[in-house]
Design a protein around this nucleic acid. Sequence first.
DNA 1: TCCATATTTCGATATTTGTCGAATCATTGG
DNA 2: CCAATGATTCGACAAATATCGAAATATGGA
Lengths: 112, 112
Amino acid sequence: MQADRFIRALSALAQEHRLAAFRLLVQAGEQGVAAGVLAEKLDVPPSSMSFHLAQLANAGLVTQRRESRSIIYSADYAAMNGLMGYLTENCCGGMSCSEDADCLPSPQRKSA
Amino acid sequence: MQADRFIRALSALAQEHRLAAFRLLVQAGEQGVAAGVLAEKLDVPPSSMSFHLAQLANAGLVTQRRESRSIIYSADYAAMNGLMGYLTENCCGGMSCSEDADCLPSPQRKSA
DNA sequence: TCCATATTTCGATATTTGTCGAATCATTGG
DNA sequence: CCAATGATTCGACAAATATCGAAATATGGA
């Protein structure tokens, strides 16, 4: 069951510090943010931050790269979009999903 | 903290049976699905299903209505879209982030 | 009213998850 | 090589979560 991958992603995001960290990374873009900076911004001990970042990485939501002594984390937009596509899959049974307030007003159209 | 609401939503979805149930509801549309039908389809005891549906409802992801003896659950598309909007807020620092645009800096497209 | 159906609430229990200090690992600069 | 810095792993504990049967709560039909 590949739903497991999405459950890991959702679990990863379903936590105060991780959600905040992920949003910071989403906003930071490609540039990314160092682990220590995230820990400081979120006022979380480095060990805890590391624990959380590992979960985000395990879920495939973030990528990491070393830059000198720092490890820079970045949001993986493809993974994020994949998750949102999964949630809205076959929305409304594939029927008219653009009508009124029903399904997806936002640009999350996926199939085809 | 307004983020609490989104954490509840993500926690609600971060569970095998709830994610499956929610997706079924998303696909079912306004018509919705009865609690018992969901329990049967997902092969989960009614009490457990009820427990999970309560969490989805508490997170505001689903609504319920009585129809004769059954309680019909439906996905709340507005809540779902709100959640997705929250995740992508100020994506890339506010630059152009529309779907096929540049929210995907890394060219690692998977299954589009 | 009585009974069957549909669902939820209540417990107890097992499992998972979050926290954080100490120790460890990796990198840089002197 | 050594000390300092940035980050992760480990271990123990606390807290939250999932499970499911039994009992309770609605509803509908005879």
